[in-house]
Every structure is written in C-alpha cells, then in structure tokens.
Design a protein around this nucleic acid. Sequence first.
DNA 1: AATGTCTGCCCC
DNA 2: ATTCTGC
DNA 3: GCAGAATGGGCAGACATT
Length: 516
Amino acid sequence: MLLKDVADTSAAVAGVSGRLAKIDLLAGCLRRSAPAEAEVVASYLAGELRQRRTGLGYASLRDLPPPADAASLQVLEVDAAFAAIGELSGKGSTAARRERFRDLMARATPAEQRLLAALVSGELRQGALDGVLTEAVARAAEVPAADVRRAITVAGALVPVAAAVLAAGPDGLAQFRLTVGSPLRPMLASPAPDIAEALQRTGEAAVEWKVDGVRVQIHRDGNDVAVFTRTLDDITGNVPELAEAALALPVRSVVLDGETIALDPSGRPLPFQRTGSRVSSRVDVATARAKVPLSLFVFDALHVDGTDLIGAPGIDRWAALSAVVPASARVPRLVTVSVDEAQAFFDDALAHGHEGVIVKGLDVPYEAGRRGAGWLKVKPRHTLDLAILAAEWGHGRRQGWLSNLHLGARDPSGAYGPEGGWVMLGKTFKGLTDQMLTWQTAELLSLADGPTDGWVVHVRPELLVEVAFDGVQTSPRYPAGVALRFARVLRHRPDKPAAEADTIDSVLAIRGPVHA
DNA sequence: AATGTCTGCCCC
DNA sequence: ATTCTGC
DNA sequence: GCAGAATGGGCAGACATT
C-alpha cells in the first residue's frame, strides 16, 4: 500500500465531522491494506509511529526539503526507514537521523509530508485516534466493537489487536487475555468537586488516600517481576524495592495496581518532583535508591494465583488484595456511606500530607483503560487573582484566539524586580470557553504593549484572572523559584483593579502544607 | 568540562 | 495533568 | 458519557556546542 492512501484517508477523516463518517473512511483504508501492512497502517491512522523511540521530534521538522511530485512511498518502506533511524546512536547520530529523515521527506508528496510530520511530532489532529479507530477496526474485520475493545484493554495497545483481528477475524481476538507479565491499561478516575458530591454519585463507597506519586502496575509470575507505569513503560530496573516487595508476597502470581512515592524519614510525602526524579533515574539506581527510597501503596488486585479479578466488584478485589498484601503496603481506606466520615478521612489524608482521596463505588469492576464514573478523585483547590502579563496565539481549534496566558503575581516590595512589578508564576490555557477566548482576545489586544503579530503578545498587566491550582512547586525557570501546579482559569476579573492582585508573598505562603 | 538543546507512546 | 466541545 | 484537542511544569539522559 502506498503511504498516499493513508495520508489521503487521514486528510479525509480530518475533513468530516461525524464520527460514523470517520469510521467509514478509516475502515476502508484498513480493508485495503495487505495483512503484512495492517500493523503499520493501523499505527499511522492512530497517529503513532510503530517505533517507540526514533530520536526525532518537533525540532527535526525544521528545514524540510521540497516535496516530491508523485507518490511513490510504500508504507512498509517508511516503517523500515523509521526503524533504521531509531537504531542510530552515539556521536553524530543526531545529524545522521536528520539526514535520513530529510531523504524520506524528499520522497514524500505534500500530503504525505504533512502525515509524516504529524507522526513524528505526535500531533495528528484528525478528530479520531484510538477510540474511533477501534470502531473502524471492528467494522473492517466485521466483529463486534465491544470484543475489539476488550482485547485492546488487556493487550494494552490497539495496534497488535488490529493486526490480529484484520488477519484472522474473531479468532484473532482469542489470544488476548489478561496475561501476567503483560501490562494492561490502568483504570483512571474522574474529577469530583467535593466529598459530598462524590459520595452522592457513588452511594456507599470505599474512600482511599490519593497518594501523589507515580502509578505502578506490578506483575509477578513465580520469580519473575515486572513493573509498569501508567503508559505501560517498563520501569522494573528503576524500582528494585517494588520488585522485592512483590517477591515477598505469599503468592505465585499476581497483578497489582498502586502508587509508589518517596517519603521522608517521618513518613510524610516528599514533593512530587522528588518521586518523579527517582522513578525516572535509571543509570545509578543503587545510589538513587539509597538516597530516596520508594514506598508502595497498593489499591487494587487484577489477578491473584490464576484468578482474573478484572470483572469482579471492587469490594471483592480489595478482599483478594488484603489476603496477599500486608496492610503496610496497602493504601489507607475507609468504607462508608457517611459524608461526615468520608470528609474526616479526607481531612486526615491532607493532614498526613497527601493529595486528597479517591471515592470508589463498591460494585465497580476494573474498567481497564477507561476514565470511569465509578472512581472519583477529590482534591482541595487553591485560587488566586493574578495578572495576565502576556498571551500566546493558539493553534488548531484555537487558531485566531489569544489562548495561553502568562500569569503573574504582584511584587509590591520589588523582591524579584522593580518595586510594584510582577513575578511570573507559569502559564495556563485551561478553563477557557470559546466565549471567554473571544472576549479575552479583544481585551488583550487593546492592552497590547508591543507587536501583536508574533508568537507572544505582551500586554500591560491590567487584566486579572481568577486562577485555580493544586499547589505551588519549586521551579528552576521562574524568577521567584516557584510555579503553580495545574493552573486553570476560573473567570476574568475586569471588575478588580490590578493593584489588588494577589502578591508573591501569598503564593509563597501556600507552599508549605500542600506542596507540589 | 561546562552548558545548551532536544526528546520522552516521560511523569504528574 | 485539567478543561471544554462535538458527537 | 466518551473521545479528542489544546496545552501546562519538571525531570533524566543523550548528544551537540562552546
């Protein structure tokens, strides 16, 4: 199959808005692919290269050669080219990669160049990724979508399932079962504003500490252990203490879901940055471990000694978990119908330095790969009134709007610059409706302090926004050494004078209890 | 040797 | 990660 | 209710540049 077919399909998918129309187009392309090509075609239509690491990215897209006139690239040769590029390493490899990529791009038509650039940068915007493509695979293979979805959740990835079912039909799905040692997509939680609302939605619930660490899925089969992250990256080598913990359990085989976090000697959480740094260190793990040991908080069991528990109610999975994991490695948990009891448990979690709680309906099965309504996360929220210092022009559906806002706190004493100046605390684009974007674009252009045709439009710091955020984290890049975590706009404050904006001192004061 | 750029189905 | 929007 | 899009801060590690 020519790459042109995939590129044309993607462009056509982007050009229609209906979900069913997108599915039709995608299924047609999948059907036209030969069995040996199905994996590559499914990958590209899902917006991913088949290679996990190519060393190419956004910066590789500068200075591209002019496109070819005629389509000649086969999907399999493109895949082979990326594989070869991914294998380059060592001195000179960056230049060699760029050169090989340029050669590939020189053979691509304009439409193909657009597709390849999107795949390399990971930004294929066609209104259809895994979710819609799953339906298209089902359509092309003439099997029920629910069966394909089930296979994908236990396989952890769409592409191998697509290849199998397109090649062998329904029989191709049989091989995809929960396999100890092979990761599945973790279940995620939806946000809820507070405890009362969460409990009202779930009814009687298990309320668990929300530990601010890194999600881990631990598989043990006999003496073999593997640890995976939320994106199913294998980090077994980085976290030997978790492997040891799994090997110490009185089981032959088990799949556990939980959170790992670095605690200080008194048992309080260290800032998330410390946990993140530790978990992603892989060169000198022994030293890293000695300096920052990891603790484990398990909250689910998906498999225990030959029994799959994914479909079982949460309360039964917890019972199975409790039978094999000691209380010291389980997340603190309370089952209740009482809002007051749940609220007290939430307050206690915060008092211990944790992020909040997860509220889980008792009957909820493990909905792998879904952000279900059965698990609700509740976290406290801070707010500040900050000035907009600048704004960046948006892309995609935000083209033509000033979107990403630079936020600053007032610095009355001039601790970080001129007296009465502003200290930047980060950026945000979240929380803005189309209506707010329209309004702020006009407003900010009227406050512009310099050119408005560049990427960043600087403005006089006169418009305030009320911003919500989860905490204050230390920052190597912003002037006060702090940045807001997960900042989002709640509303504009044209009613409030800039002289009354919150100050950098009030931001630094928040840092203590609910740090990063 | 120090510093800078870039990438990562990164982590959150 | 969080949030909004179209389906 | 889901899936997709639009983007945030910070980290380690590989390689390039000075």
